[in-house]
Amino acid sequence: MIDIIREYWQNYLFSDGYRLSGLAITLWLLVVSIGLGFLLAVPMAIARASSNRFISGPVWLYTYVFRGTPLYVQLLLCYTGIYSLHAVHSYAMLDAFFRNAMNCTLLAFTLNECAYATEILAGSIKATAYGEIEAAQAYGMSKFKIYTRVILPSALRRALPMYSNEVILMLHATTLAFTATIPDILKVARDVNAATYASFQAFTIAAVLYAAIVFALLWGFRRMERRLLAFLKPQGH
């Protein structure tokens, strides 16, 4: 039994030809969804922090919907719901995009991650000390420079602890990818369990892999926090 499990995990934990391992698929889902979600969240957070309701309102609605509904439902909508629409089949590009399980999974993960990251960054932007903004205005900076040189750098630093938790939660959320038949770590563990009925060994290995990734992420974020948030520590006399 152990030999069978070892053979399965050797085949799926490491790349084999053109097939990516379950570990690589999980990391790919995490990196792409976090990266794209963050890039989309920065301008949306600026809009969300705006005092103009016509600008902040649509962003609030978007974050409310995606934070108020389960990611599992969002994944099902992207994977099966949207593809069932006649308008999608009418365009070859849309048809090809939503026919691919990986594209649908990344779309759902990215949109969900963007919603949470937007609220985290918007909160940090709103919490920026007004004295910093006044100092920038005294230097004659334009509104664009104030955002790029003062508000955003300060907000991104202060949002780091909360954002690190969101990244870890996104890693846990990647376990839903098996719903779209994506061969991530959990999907591999389920395949091993189905083939060998060794549930404890299969899912224990999966748990160890997820824990190892989390510890690596925590280590990286803690180093970044010590470096980027050092100015918040009390200064000795």
Rank of each mutant, 00 (worst) to 15 (best):
I125P: 00
K145R: 14
N165Y: 11
T148S: 09
G131T: 02
S164L: 11
Y163I: 09
I151H: 03
R157P: 04
S124N: 03
A138G: 02
G123Q: 04
Y163A: 07
Y130M: 12
Y163S: 13
S154Q: 12
I151P: 06
A159D: 14
N165V: 11
K145G: 12
K145T: 11
A159T: 09
S154M: 13
I125S: 00
S142G: 15
M141V: 05
R157Y: 08
P161I: 07
R158S: 12
G131E: 01
A159W: 09
T128H: 01
Y139A: 10
G140T: 04
M141D: 02
L152Q: 06
I125Y: 01
E132T: 05
P153G: 12
I151R: 02
A155P: 08
P161A: 12
S164K: 13
P153E: 13
S164F: 10
I151T: 13
R149V: 06
A129Q: 08
G123F: 01
V150L: 11
L152D: 05
G140D: 04
Y139R: 06
L160G: 11
L160H: 11
A129V: 05
I151N: 08
G123S: 09
A155K: 07
A122W: 00
S154W: 04
I133V: 15
A136P: 00
I133F: 08
M162K: 09
T148L: 15
Y147T: 13
P161W: 10
I146N: 10
A135V: 04
S142L: 02
S164C: 14
I125A: 06
A122E: 03
P161M: 03
R157G: 14
G123I: 01
G123D: 07
